[in-house]
């Protein structure tokens, strides 16, 4: 998102003076030094990270570094094998005996699958219900405006902390987890969907009416699709927050998933394992965000 804005302005500055006939003849952007800068950026990050690791010192209790360094993270990856389903005890992970990268990978894959499934179900259900509800209440402008405040209030609910409430309602099984994730996604998404419909420019409906379309038809075939691009920030926010919600519910009440590993690792003060999980989640977060953005842009590729 931001790099796009960056290149926009850069080309604006150079293309303004020479705007020959067709728009496609834009001056070329400088791309030669790009890989070098990316490498430098990675290097700078690694340097700062490991400098912090050296400066932060060592935990008096476990003897591990308080800020695990890059090497600590790589070396600790096999620890994840202890979290494989049916594995004896996570406590063993601190001793670091008898683990293999393959077993760790298998364990990681299992927990990733569990978490990703929860995330996917929560996101799909939550976004679908939010959009459906927004479409239902938005056909009339007065009703839509009236729901603006409740929609805003929904988003301010302490969503990440509401998992225990769903425990009361549904018990600690999967249903409660899915319901919680769907509800939280709904709360993030609903105000975005309502305001997206509210912001559809009036000329769309005027144009459709001039073509002779009836109001129900205009609403479903013109207003709703025109509002679609406005959902983008909501979808991306839902994905970014969705991971935290999955972690929260797994941390609190589930016996598997990435959040479960985090909770056990914290319980046993396995700083290095926590750092491994941190790195993995940074990657997962980025990957799913980019995938969601790409997918969404594909969905609304008709847009200017």
């Amino acid at each position: 998102m931001s790099s796009q804005a960056m290149t926009n302005t850069r080309s604006m500055a150079t293309s303004a003076p020479a705007r020959p006939r067709a728009a496609k003849r834009k001056p070329r952007r400088k791309t030669k030094d790009r890989p070098l800068m990316v490498a430098l950026s990675v290097l700078a990050t690694l340097l700062i990270w490991n400098a912090a690791s050296l400066l932060a010192g060592v935990s008096p209790i476990t003897g591990d570094r308080l800020v695990p360094g890059t090497l600590d993270v790589i070396r600790s990856f096999p620890n994840l094998a202890y979290y494989a389903p049916g594995s004896p005890d996570a406590l063993l992970a601190s001793s670091g005996a008898g683990t293999s990268v393959g077993a760790a990978l298998k364990s990681l894959l299992y927990h990733t699958g569990v978490s990703a499934l929860r995330l996917a179900i929560g996101l799909v259900a939550g976004i679908a219900i939010a959009c459906l509800a927004a479409v239902l209440i938005s056909w009339n402008r007065t009703i839509r405006r009236a729901f603006m405040l409740p929609a805003q209030a929904f988003r301010m609910l302490p969503l990440l902390a509401l998992a225990p409430l769903f425990g009361i309602w549904f018990g600690s099984g999967q249903t409660g987890t899915y319901a919680y994730l769907a509800f939280a996604t709904f709360a993030v998404m609903f105000p975005v969907a309502v305001s997206a419909i509210d912001h559809v420019p009036g000329y769309y409906t005027n144009y459709a009416r001039s073509l002779g379309a009836g109001s129900a038809r205009i609403y479903l075939s013109v207003v709703v699709p025109a509002a679609l691009p406005g959902l983008r920030p909501g979808v991306l926010l839902s994905v970014a927050f969705g991971w935290s919600m999955v972690l929260a519910v797994e941390y609190i009440s589930q016996g598997n998933g990435l959040g479960f590993i985090v909770s056990r690792a914290q319980e046993f003060s396995q700083i290095n394992t926590l750092a491994v999980m941190g790195c993995i989640l940074v990657i997962y977060g980025r990957f799913s965000y980019v995938a969601a953005a790409r997918g969404f842009d594909r969905l609304v590729r008709w847009q200017e």
Binding site: T14, P17, A18, P20, K24, R25, K26, P27, R28, R29
Partner: peptide
């Protein structure tokens, strides 16, 4: 002179 995205150059 400007270098264009198409690879052409334009003498402005």
């Amino acid at each position: 002179v400007f270098e264009l995205e198409t690879g052409e150059t334009l003498t402005a």
